[in-house]
């Protein structure tokens, strides 16, 4: 399972309450999992302890595309409806040392795939990707990054890198 980032911090769906509130208020009903159109939300396994049965996103498997459907069906305050630009899941950072576009191969997949293209990830004058403050941490860039290992470092909200 590759959902473990930075000391087991989970990437939570958009509009998620802070970690302590989320694990308390989530009723573990899986409705966010079942709502379409994407199949991005997973449920914490029993080994996730406090996060058992709570929703998280594994961006390497399927990132969040900011369809914003999951908060709409959450019966609790675990996920609240917010505009996509305020979904505040985390923050991505480009690892420039291994990023194609920063090392001579024009790539820009992260920029092209970013749901907030031009806002959260922009390109500098030489078409090198730069993540801005507007990044909500949806993980699409991490998902599509063609380098191995990926040249995006994604820190879930509440975690420090």
């Amino acid at each position: 399972m590759s959902f473990l980032f930075d000391r087991s911090g989970l990437l939570r769906p958009p509009g998620a309450a802070d970690e302590a509130d989320l694990v308390g208020s989530c009723i573990r009903c899986a409705r966010c999992v079942e709502v379409r159109p994407y199949q991005s939300i997973r449920l914490g396994p029993i080994t996730a302890l406090r996060s058992y049965g709570t929703p998280f996103i594994d961006p390497l498997g399927s990132p969040c595309y900011l369809c914003m459907r999951c908060p709409e069906v959450c019966p609790t305050s675990a996920l609240t409806v917010v505009p996509a630009v305020e979904s505040a899941m985390g923050t991505a950072r480009v690892i420039e040392e291994s990023c194609y576009s920063w090392t001579g191969t024009v790539c820009n997949q992260c920029y092209r795939s970013c749901p907030l293209k031009g806002t959260a990830i922009d390109l500098d004058d030489l078409l090198q990707p730069v993540v801005t403050e507007a990044c909500v941490g949806c993980g699409v860039c991490l998902h599509v990054c063609p380098t191995e290992p990926r040249s995006i470092h994604l820190v879930p909200r509440g975690e420090t890198s």
Binding site: Y100, G104, T105, V106, C107, Q109, P146
Partner: peptide, 19 residues
């Protein structure tokens, strides 16, 4: 790898060439 002294790309290539 991109050919460093090539006049067209001077070492740079794109994602397709890279793969």
């Amino acid at each position: 790898r991109g050919m460093e002294d090539h006049p067209v790309n001077r070492g740079e290539i794109c994602l397709l060439g890279q793969n």
